[in-house]
Write a protein that binds this DNA or RNA. Sequence first.
DNA 1: ATATATGCAAAACTTTTGCATACAA
DNA 2: TTGTATGCAAAAGTTTTGCATATAT
Lengths: 151, 151
Amino acid sequence: MALSKTDRHNATAQEIDRRLALAGLRWTKGRRAVVEALQVTPAPLSVTDLQTAVGPAVPLSSLYRIIADLLEAKVLIKLEFAEGFARFELDEDLASHHHHLVCTQCGDVADLELADLEVTLVTAVKSIKRRTGFRASNHRLDFFGLCAKCA
Amino acid sequence: MALSKTDRHNATAQEIDRRLALAGLRWTKGRRAVVEALQVTPAPLSVTDLQTAVGPAVPLSSLYRIIADLLEAKVLIKLEFAEGFARFELDEDLASHHHHLVCTQCGDVADLELADLEVTLVTAVKSIKRRTGFRASNHRLDFFGLCAKCA
DNA sequence: ATATATGCAAAACTTTTGCATACAA
DNA sequence: TTGTATGCAAAAGTTTTGCATATAT
């Protein structure tokens, strides 16, 4: 690979800085804590998960506001898996584009990269535009089933 | 096609009956209203959409309970698009398997069938099982972008 | 007749907001 | 210093639940 792990981490941090600056947001303790929690655990975290991760120093209302700000700055993306609450992860350009494996038994959500599939999806996007006029700029693919532990 | 539209509708109604019976659920006025609303509008509806569709005869709490029962009987499936509320549609075996086109401008959600893609996804499921041990029994694919009207 | 479904009211849970104070630039 | 971010408290929106009554089988 062209970049070492450390280089890539620095590059990512720099890109996060850039996006925050672009949105006129400051690099505060709370925001740092949330971003770091999501770097440590790349699988999508709920607000409750994040609350546990960052500890009681960040109250719930601030956590929600921090998340809203980071969403607006496109540092995070929001996901929902029909659980009744939202999950969040680092924007795909800050991580790599991936999909999710949702275990219907234990509720665990794991990340999955599937490069081959992306090629097919690009073709699908073209076909959709031709058939329906819809211009897809993004997609989301989740698989549901039993994880290795539960199977 | 082998079945006429009416035949297919009857077959679907019969299958819904079967699933309700299997779950020990009665075929009541409220449940009928909800299922019919979703047959008229196959794109995923929110609880508010359904409330409008079925009218004030079904109060909100009953609507939620009806939905919960129909979910358990596998007559409906639940979807979330990070809007802060859930959407519901007829189970894919009662309709046909399809994906969604979500307009990020106007919020409209349209259905899309993409048969070619399904073949690729079946292959992907095998590859996932081999690589990760995850046994995917189902998947969900949504495209985000601008609909023909908003583009 | 009897178990299930509904209606009303109250509550639980997730998320948002107002306002005074604390902090980053 | 100055505008932004945070903390606390209160509220808004979505979904769930208890209990008495009505209904489907």
